[in-house]
């Protein structure tokens, strides 16, 4: 069952399969006899397919956004409470370290304002997480552990595309991203940072790398839920929230035997501290500024490998927790 729709083909019925192939343009190949025209046709076809895929992804994001807006409008009181909850939760998490930094006039060589920049970065990461992860699609062990993967596998869309687009919540999930951006502006102003286009591009690249690491680690450990659905249902929470407080610690001034494990085995240092120092123009420990990107790539590859292996196991064994409508057994 698991393989049913991952690479399925559509015959142009408009159901929007990302990997769909259309046969309508094949006949054109016979008309153009010279090699250049044939090559051009192939390029155009590839571009057209790519465009359709991108348009479909945006279409799916729009559907998620519409459902999010519907929740906000129909259940405004609870949605507003949810938004407040997100902001309060994040503020409580990041304010602790900032208060320490303010009280001690900095921590381990980082000034209070530099710590503020780090907390702003952390808040933006939290914001992006809630913006794109509102449907347990990043806490994927919950979907697997509760036997809800079946609901995705019967849809006429690749699993990856569904997981990437189903948690988009721009109306109720974007509050921390806005708060983080505002904090970042304040911190940059206090530090006298020149905000240029390359700096913003670097910020976007680091945010993307941080998110990739979070998602990769979650998917890596969540693969355990394919084998032990009940015991590992919440393992992604341990991997994401369980260690999140660590990611707000400035590691500056700590000994190497603390710093190195937190940049490799448990990469909490890559969630805010390392990228913030890179954005301040001083990558820590003499490491290359692109280290988070390299780590993100390796983590993603490892997660892809392990998750696919788990999915294969699931396709053969199924889930003992599946019941209609996805309630837990």
């Amino acid at each position: 069952m698991a393989d049913n729709n991952i690479n399925s083909n559509s015959n142009g019925n408009g159901n929007g399969n990302i990997n769909s192939n259309s046969n309508s343009s094949n006949s054109n190949n016979n008309i153009n006899s010279n090699g250049d025209s044939s090559s051009n046709n192939r390029i155009w076809k590839a571009l057209r397919l790519a465009w359709r895929a991108i348009a479909r992804v945006f279409g799916l994001l729009a559907i998620s956004a519409k459902m999010d807006l519907a929740w906000l409008l129909r259940d405004t009181k609870y949605a507003a409470l949810g938004i407040c909850g997100d902001v309060v939760n994040n503020a409580a998490t990041v304010s602790g370290v900032f208060l320490i930094a303010s009280r001690f006039d900095g921590i381990g060589g980082m000034s209070a304002d530099e710590t503020l920049l780090m907390m702003a970065y952390s808040t933006m990461v939290t914001g992006i997480f809630t913006l794109f992860g509102a449907g347990n699609n990043i806490h994927v062990s919950r979907i697997i552990g509760r036997g809800q993967l079946e609901h995705l596998l019967v849809q006429p869309l690749p699993l990856g595309v569904q997981l990437a687009t189903s948690g988009f919540a721009p109306f109720t999930g974007g509050s921390n991203l806005i708060a983080g951006a505002a904090l970042l502006a304040v911190a940059a102003g206090r530090l006298g940072l020149r905000i240029t286009l390359p700096w913003l591009a670097a910020l976007a690249a680091y945010l993307l790398a941080t998110m990739a690491i979070i998602v990769a680690r979650s998917y890596l450990v969540s693969s355990a839920a394919f084998y032990a659905p009940a015991a590992a249902e919440e393992i992604s929470s341990d991997a994401i929230e369980g260690t999140w407080i660590l990611s707000t610690f400035p590691l500056s001034g700590m000994p190497r035997f603390v710093q190195i494990p937190l940049l490799t085995i448990m990469p909490e240092g890559l969630m805010a501290w390392f990228p913030s120092l890179c954005l301040l123009g001083r990558p820590p420990l003499g490491m290359a500024a692109y280290y988070p990107m390299a780590f993100a790539l390796l983590a993603s590859l490892a997660a892809n490998l392990v998750f696919r292996k788990g999915l294969d196991h699931y396709a053969r064994k199924g889930s003992n927790r599946y019941v209609p409508h996805g309630f837990r057994r």
């Binding site: 320490i100 930094a101 009280r103 001690f104 006039d105 900095g106 921590i107 381990g108 341990d238 369980g242 260690t243 407080i245 660590l246 610690f249 400035p250 590691l251 500056s252 001034g253 700590m254 000994p255 603390v258 937190l262 448990m266």
Partner: peptide, 21 residues
């Protein structure tokens, strides 16, 4: 996770309090 969080937290305090405030 509890144990791993505790160790950096101890060093965070050491780093912070080394300022002499």
């Amino acid at each position: 996770i509890k144990a791993v969080t505790l160790v950096p937290l101890m060093y965070l305090w050491r780093a912070a309090m080394s300022s002499g405030a």
